[in-house]
Design a protein around this nucleic acid. Structure first.
Length: 511
RNA sequence: GACCCGGUAGCUCAGCUGGUAGAGCAACGGACUUUUAAUCCGUAGGUCGCGGGUUCGAGACCCGCCCGGGUCACCA
């Protein structure tokens, strides 16, 4: 449909005009429900035929006129309940207005509960209030119960339109609402875990004169008044660690990072990152934190999405295939060391290879564009193929080579390594953490090495952040730090295969 | 970025080797006072993603483009 009025929308505008002519205000200011639909369903005892009067509000999601009666279903966030409009109850004048209602209208009703002949709890509508007229048809499908399973017919299936018009996707798919409720609860659980440890939630700049803290291509923008370029942050890390210098000993931030890279089923240009930093802790402590945090996150998601946790009223509106088995995290997670695991998988001492042999190995493993990669990148690629991709159950990879980790402290007892770990599950990175480098002289040398890579054409290498070095020179407490991609964590917990399914408004090309 | 699949009514889809568009639902009109994918009768609704080409004739075939989905690659 083009955006001009098609015949369906014309019909709705005509009904709108008819309602207005009858003195009905089609867009209300509020309503005062006594129950949500789930509470209303519970208010009629199982064997009772008649129940109390309830006031409920929501969207009409089914509409079945039968001459002098109408059956409909009213849905709110909790569940849905059947409505019964009867001309003899409402009077001819009111019933004529009921006939001007449409699927998708938002209404409030009140009336006593009763049980229909087929046993369904229903509101015998005594009065109805139009709260918002729906002028554009929502893509409702039809639903039926087959052996207790909810089966959808037709409906709203085009994934593009579902992402673009998430409001419509949410309006017609209770299970999509449910998924985002679960995501929100997961973030609440993470906050509450960190808050319980005395962490302070903070906000650091999204617009940064110099980006850093990760290896990625940034978005570039411009500030008019200052007439200067600004980057959208690719990580929170360097600002959070500045705060620890300032004496805020436990800080975290949950916010969006922005990376100017491709879009696919695991990448959205903006995504939600959790980072937390804890003074006096090393990476061993942070492994404990990550384990406990993931258990809390998984429990919170399970509480919303596991079938045995849902009430009967909630189950009523959810198709069976929307129930999710949330994986159990069982700490402690196994640990594998970076260099030994790589050497074992490769059958040779990879770190000792000459550049030419290293390239050969990468070629043999199917790494692309080998010629353009520097040594750290080559190592990382080889590791990804041989080790990371094969880690299915949650596993910590520990002690990364120094050249891969410009912000991590050297490993005690082996200065070629760093005290860094990443957590992998189903072949995907779930967390990245280290004992944070707090030696400003070492840090300067590492950043200068990065700057040389950048000058040599590595678009993801970062430059020297003088202000960050200045902060560190004042004295930075030893600390552990962790970064966790919230979208990917939630994907893992819910079995989602596309990041767009866990982001309310994923980045799309304009229509 | 490569490859595969797709874009036809508001929604979900059909349309055989080319003969000028179809169903169900939604909508509109009618019947129906306990239905629940309500049912029954009738009506209306389409630049067949966009542009070019082949052809007497293109939704279908060819070329280009746009948009999307999937797979792979890239992305510490």
């Amino acid at each position: 449909m083009s955006d001009d009025l098609n015949f369906v929308m014309k019909a709705r505008r005509e009904k709108l005009a008819a309602l207005e002519a009858a003195g009905i205000a089609p867009f209300a200011y509020g309503f005062d429900p006594t129950h949500d639909t789930a509470a209303a369903l519970r208010a009629l005892p199982p064997e009772a035929e008649e129940g109390p009067v309830v006031r409920v509000a929501g969207r009409l999601v089914a509409w079945r006129p039968h001459g002098k009666t109408v059956f409909g279903h009213l849905a709110d966030q909790a569940s849905r309940i059947q409505l019964y409009f009867r001309r003899d109850d409402l009077g001819e004048d009111v019933f004529r207005l009921v006939e001007l209602l449409d699927l998708g209208d938002i209404i409030g009703v009140s009336g006593p509960l009763f049980r229909t002949r087929t046993g369904e709890t229903t509101v015998r509508v005594a009065s109805a209030t139009l709260l918002a007229k729906s002028l554009r048809p929502l893509p409702f499908g039809k639903e039926e119960r087959v052996d207790g399973r909810l089966v959808r017919h037709s409906g709203f299936a085009d994934p593009e339109q579902r992402y673009r018009q998430r409001y419509a996707d949410l309006a017609v798919h209770p299970e999509v609402r449910r998924r985002f409720v679960a995501r929100s609860r997961m973030i609440t659980a993470i906050r509450s875990y960190l808050d319980g440890l005395g962490y302070l939630e903070v906000e650091t700049p999204v617009l940064q004169p110099q980006y850093g803290g990760a290896a990625a291509r940034p978005f570039l923008t411009h500030h008019n008044a200052l007439d200067m370029p600004l980057y959208l942050r690719i990580a929170d890390e360097l600002y959070l660690k500045r705060l620890v210098v300032g004496g805020l000993e436990r800080v975290y931030e949950i916010g969006h990072d922005f990376r100017n890279e491709g879009i696919d089923r695991t990448h959205n240009p903006e995504f939600t990152m959790l980072e937390f930093y804890e003074a006096w802790a090393d990476y061993e402590v942070m492994m404990d934190r990550v384990e406990a945090l993931l258990v809390a996150a998984a429990d919170s998601v399970r509480a919303v999405l596991a079938p045995d946790r849902l009430s009967a009223e909630e189950r009523l509106v959810l198709p069976d295939d929307s129930f999710v088995h949330v994986p159990e995290f069982r700490p402690p997670f196994p640990r594998v060391e970076w260099v030994p695991s790589l050497n074992a998988a490769a059958g040779m001492d990879v770190m000792a290879l000459e550049p030419a042999s290293l390239r050969q190995l990468a070629e043999r493993l199917g790494v692309n564009a080998v010629a353009t990669l520097n040594r750290p990148k080559l190592l990382d690629e080889i590791f990804q193929v041989l080790v990371e991709g094969k880690l299915d159950t949650p596993t910590f990879v520990v002690d990364y080579p120094k050249e891969l980790s410009p912000l991590a402290k050297p490993r005690r007892g082996n200065a070629a390594l760093t005290e860094r770990f990443e957590l992998f599950a189903r072949g995907k990175e779930m967390a990245n953490a280290f004992s944070e480098l707090n030696d400003p002289i070492d840090q300067r040398a590492r950043l200068e090495a990065q700057a040389r890579l950048k000058a040599a054409g590595d678009e993801e290498a970062v430059g020297v952040d003088e202000d960050y070095l200045r902060a560190m020179e004042y004295g930075m407490p030893p600390m552990g730090g962790v970064g966790i991609g919230i979208d990917r964590l939630f994907m893992y917990l819910t079995g989602a295969s596309n990041i767009r399914d866990v982001i309310l408004f994923p980045t799309m090309r304009p229509e």
